[in-house]
């Protein structure tokens, strides 16, 4: 069951049970949000989308930036508990060391929702966690390629994220799952581009030289959009047409890739939605309305965007979010 149907069902159920009143109406509630920091553009976008979502719902959001430090997050959560907020959102910077502070929140009967990263703590200490499924992101990207090359032979080069990082491992795994069983699609080369534009460009230059001046490459799969943007420049420098001669598919959905898609230089991106707070607020609304316990792990949608999905509009919508 997809997350959308799950959410729709949950919302529908809640509405049915709550004697006609809008279950989603959580205006006036006070919610504390302990954010990791602003280490990446995506993180900044998550912060602005969370603030937007809170405003739309009339929630009074108390925001705390932890500047990448767990001690700051624990302090912020204790502060929220002392203020007696109605709920706490946490994007945990590390996985361990949360048991005590989560226990304190539980004793104060304040529901805690984890955003985009999990923790190693007993599951009864938090209400739910909202996160993307990185394996699924890779799978969606791979599926797009499978659907688009048909039965033609297709040599793919892969730009991996930082070696050993969980998005790199999982996005690689998902892509390989999707192309498994399609023997015409093979990963010819795979190297790390460290999630950056310049490394993505440099690695792609190497791949083009190694694969007969790029003539043998059918598609490039990048674990994030920034590397794809770098790869697009390398393809252009080699005198080839990105998007046509070499297909470009990547993950994240940052504004610049939508510009590239609009220009026909990239083909598809899988969105890592910065809207983790929306599902979190929905789960909280249902919980407050009638005590509905949400699923322990809410998985956000990994939506595929191509040239058919109004890339210009998506670019306009995203460019102000802080990516």
């Amino acid at each position: 069951m997809s997350i959308i149907t799950k959410l729709a069902l949950a919302a529908g159920l809640a509405t049915a049970l709550s004697s006609g009143a809008l279950a989603q109406d959580i205006s006036g509630k006070v919610v504390g949000f302990s954010q990791i920091g602003s280490e990446s553009g995506w993180r900044a976008a998550e912060t602005s989308v969370t603030k937007q979502q809170a405003e739309e719902r009339g929630v009074d959001l108390k925001f705390a930036d932890a500047q990448q430090k767990q001690e700051n997050q624990i302090k912020a959560i204790r502060g929220f508990i002392a203020q007696g907020v109605d709920a706490i959102l946490v994007a945990p910077v590390v996985a361990t060391g949360w048991d005590d502070v989560l226990q304190e929140a539980k004793e104060a009967e304040i529901p805690v929702v984890l955003l985009d990263r999990g923790v190693e703590a007993p599951e009864d200490l938090y209400l739910t966690s909202v996160a993307s499924d990185q394996v699924k992101e890779g799978r969606v990207a791979g599926q797009w390629l499978v659907d688009n090359v048909g039965s033609e032979d297709c040599k793919v080069v892969e730009l991996q994220g930082t070696v050993g990082s969980s998005p790199a491992i999982n996005r690689k795994k998902g892509f390989e799952e999707a192309i498994a069983g399609h023997d015409n699609i093979t990963i010819a080369r795979s190297q790390t581009g460290d999630f950056t534009r310049s490394k993505g460009k440099e690695v792609m230059e190497g791949f083009i030289k190694a694969e007969n001046g790029g003539a043998d490459i059918c598609a490039v799969y990048a674990h994030n959009d920034d590397m794809a943007v770098g790869a697009i420049q390398a393809i252009k420098d080699a005198g080839l047409k990105p998007g046509t001669d070499i297909k470009v598919v990547s993950i994240d959905g940052v504004p610049d890739i939508f510009q590239a898609i609009a220009a026909g230089e990239a083909n598809a991106t899988v969105e890592l939605t910065p809207n983790m707070a929306g599902p979190a607020f929905d789960a909280l609304a249902a919980y407050w309305a009638d005590g509905t316990e949400p699923e322990k792990f809410i998985i956000t949608e990994s939506k595929l965007y191509t040239a058919a999905d109004d890339p210009e509009g998506e670019y306009e919508r995203r460019k102000g979010l802080g990516y």
């Binding site: 991996q160 070696v163 190297q191 030289k209």
Partner: peptide, 15 residues
């Protein structure tokens, strides 16, 4: 060395 690693096709874990 960097360029050599890129064109040689070593897995990135070995870089």
């Amino acid at each position: 060395m960097n360029t050599g690693i890129l064109v040689s096709g070593f897995p990135p874990e070995f870089n």
